[in-house]
Design a binder for these strands. Structure first.
Length: 529
RNA sequence: GAGCCGUUAGCUCAGGCGGUUAGAGCAUCUGACUUUUAAUCAGAGGGUCCCGGGUUCGAGUCCCGGACGGCUCACCA
């Protein structure tokens, strides 16, 4: 075996892929990866991680065993009853009255899709599109409705008591007596959170139930009767549902948040009752905010995918989600520039390694999409671009670009570097504009500052064609006149007036590039206040 | 209380299977650039690797115990 081959790579997806391949030896069977999405809320960073990470393992499998077929299922539980209206959807009061119904039967509060979950799935597709992942979205409601789950639902009816025996010890005392693996959908009020099973009849494929349960916003209607559990008239509860999917699709590999460790253990026992084998599991850590608290989806803490995409190239996001899934990682807005710089660093290293033909053990082997820039031959960093943005203002992208290309002409030397630099610029501008700029304190020019500004305006007005050096000299002359002992003191007030910061670029060159006219305008506005 | 995960510089993090003096980036400080208070360059400081035991010639790394932090222990997915 080649010593630089995928079998010797230590990155976690390779380790996982080897674990997976060892499990069924030389089997030629298709390997099934599963990730899940609960469409009772908007997709978020965790959703993305849940699809991305198994796809990393899948990629490693392909590198190690190229002949092995595989598929990645993203299972969408749109049969779930809505328990709470998320804070970030419109028309919340309008949605309120559908609480307790499966999300696939609730109208879209955004008004553009066929259902609540339909909308969330649309958002999910949009979220996943730029990732270029090969995957299949599978809707729970369709699987139930078209009967694909029926054979296993019958099995659940047969193993009813055994499943209950497994579950009951994990429940609170007061809930033990009433628990059932089935949740029928009430034909009268359409709620799924409101039904309670009273009896089950494996031979008829039915359960008896009454609509009397108050849970997750449900308002029981009192209906009672006997209904088939097949064909989408009932669903099974979470841990049983997970087991059912594993059984039906033959899932080999599933990543989940560590909050699901206990669920996975139980579902694993259930899937054995159903004649299946639990998949290889991989619990990953949650994301933390600046204070080290768990990032919440409903509350506005943490960083949203939209923010990521606005402030960082998509590859940097993938890179972030690649690194260290077993470690809780802090993610907050102020840390984004750092993560982007980390990615750029990795990209430079990757390009260098690529030249030596040993790119396999780089995270970028997993992160780069076909259309991603694959090298970055510039020392440009997020912080550098942001500093320049601070100086040049965020409104004029062209000016910034001119400045950067003059700063480092290598940006233009190849297509990949240029595209990456453009992305970097766009992100840094967004970050600066949204996040840093609003926090800047407006500077109140003092008497002396006004004098300095006026003198500079006069000079620039009379000598609009002055060179960078001549402008620099003129500023220094102003300084010499005012502060004979330390002429350099003239600069800070100018930085403050022009760019609201204490330090900045060499002013001569800067003013030349930004054009004297523009600087005159800025100073005059400052004086007018 | 039980289980899982974590704790390395001010911050974010690296440290394959134990091996020399524990690293990086950012931040901080100093200096240089014959006209800047820099975005450049050079340099510096900064660590009880959470604590205590153990195994070992040798422990940030392995084992045991403890502290601290996070999460889970729901008819939620």
């Amino acid at each position: 075996m080649n010593s630089s081959g995928p079998n010797n790579c230590r990155l976690w997806p390779y380790e996982e892929a080897r674990r997976l391949l060892e499990r069924d030896g030389d089997g030629a069977r298709e390997i099934v990866f599963e990730g899940g999405f609960g469409p009772s809320g908007l997709p978020h960073l965790g959703t993305m991680a849940e699809v991305l990470r198994p796809s990393f393992v899948r990629h490693a499998v392909r590198l190690i065993a190229p002949q092995r077929r595989s598929r990645l299922i993203v299972f969408i539980d749109d049969m779930d009853g809505l328990r709470k209206v998320p804070e970030n959807v419109p028309e919340r009061e309008r949605v309120e009255r559908y609480l307790g119904q499966p999300v696939s039967r609730i109208p879209d509060p955004f008004g553009c899709c066929e259902s609540f979950s339909g909308h969330m799935v649309k958002l999910l597709r949009e979220l996943l599109r730029p990732l270029h992942l090969e995957h299949e979205l599978i809707l729970s409601s369709e699987m139930y409705a078209n009967g694909r789950f029926d054979p296993i639902l019958r099995l659940v009816l047969e193993k009813y008591q055994e499943i209950i025996d497994l579950m009951v010890p994990t429940l609170r005392d007061e809930n033990r007596a009433a628990w059932s693996p089935f949740l029928p959908i009430c034909p009268s009020c359409e709620q799924v959170n409101s039904t309670r099973v009273i009896a089950h009849h494996p031979e008829r494929g039915t359960v008896e139930f009454s609509c009397e349960r108050t849970f997750g916003g449900s308002r029981p209607c009192g209906f009672s009767g006997e209904r088939s559990v097949l064909g989408g008239q009932a669903k099974v509860q979470w841990k049983v549902d997970w087991a059912m999917r594993w059984r039906l699709f033959g899932v080999d590999y599933e990543l989940y948040g560590k909050d699901l460790i206990d669920s996975a253990r139980l579902s694993g026992q259930i899937v054995r009752l159903l004649g299946g084998t639990p998949p290889l599991g991989f619990p990953f850590e949650m994301f933390l905010d600046e204070e080290g608290r768990k990032v919440s989806k409903s509350v506005g803490r943490g960083v949203t995918v939209e923010q990521w995409q606005r402030y960082a190239p998509i590859e940097a996001l993938k890179y972030f989600l690649f690194v260290n899934p077993r470690r809780a990682r802090k993610l907050f807005l102020a840390a984004i520039p750092q993560y982007v710089d980390e990615y750029l660093e990795e990209l430079r290293a990757y390009a260098a390694a690529k030249d030596e033909e040993k790119p396999l053990d780089s995270p970028l082997e997993f992160v780069l999409a076909p259309d991603s820039p694959r090298r970055f031959n510039s020392d440009l960093s997020f912080s550098l671009v942001m500093n320049v943005a601070a100086a040049l203002g965020v409104s004029d992208r062209e000016l910034m670009w001119n400045y950067l290309t003059r700063y480092d002409p290598a940006i233009l030397a190849d297509e990949d570097t240029r595209r990456m630099a453009e992305a970097l610029l766009a992100c840094a501008l967004n970050f600066r504009r949204d996040y840093l700029e609003p926090a800047l304190l407006p500077y109140e020019p003092q008497v002396q500052d006004r004098l300095i500004a006026q003198k500079l305006i006069d000079f620039l007005t009379t000598s609009p064609e002055a060179s960078a050096r001549e402008i620099e000299t003129a500023i220094y002359d102003i300084g010499r006149a005012l502060f004979p002992e330390k002429p350099g003191k003239v600069f800070q007030p100018l930085y403050r007036m022009i760019m609201q910061q204490d330090r900045g670029p060499r002013l001569g060159a800067f003013i030349r590039l930004a054009t004297p006219q523009r600087v005159i305008g800025i100073l005059e506005r400052r004086l007018a206040n």
